[in-house]
């Protein structure tokens, strides 16, 4: 197989795997029982699914600026996802300061 074919196969594989994570994350968002577990499903889809899709698209971009752009998109989504996840989980925390039953800690 030529280098182009290998990179194409890699792209198809990684993007498909990333889409699978998004599908699973969406399913989790719809089906899981409480907010913290739904948050967990959602951030997994964002972190891993988007990461795999970005990874898969990298070989298709020829310019270094394009690579930086793609990776920056993923890093910004990570930052936003982590922050929003913490904020939503924090909003669930009882106001007396005790940690909630699940999802506390520094993850």
């Amino acid at each position: 197989m030529s280098a182009v074919e290998i990179s194409t196969v890699f792209t198809v594989f990684a993007v498909s795997l990333g889409s699978l994570f998004f599908l699973a994350g969406t399913l989790g968002l719809l089906r899981l029982p409480d907010t913290l577990t739904r948050l967990h499903a959602l951030t997994k889809a964002d972190n891993l699914g988007l990461g795999l899709i970005v990874l898969g698209l990298l070989p298709q971009v020829s310019s270094p600026l394009g690579w930086i752009g793609l990776i920056a998109v993923w890093l910004l989504a990570l930052l936003a996802g982590a922050t929003v996840g913490q904020l939503l989980a924090g909003a669930l925390r009882p106001s007396d300061g005790t940690p909630p039953d699940r999802g506390g800690g520094s993850a």
Binding site: L79, T83, Q86, L87, G90
Partner: peptide, 15 residues
């Protein structure tokens, strides 16, 4: 504001 939001507001603006 919760501390994650303060963190985001410190990290994100330069970008």
């Amino acid at each position: 504001a919760a501390s994650p939001l303060r963190f985001l507001a410190q990290v994100l603006p330069p970008f």
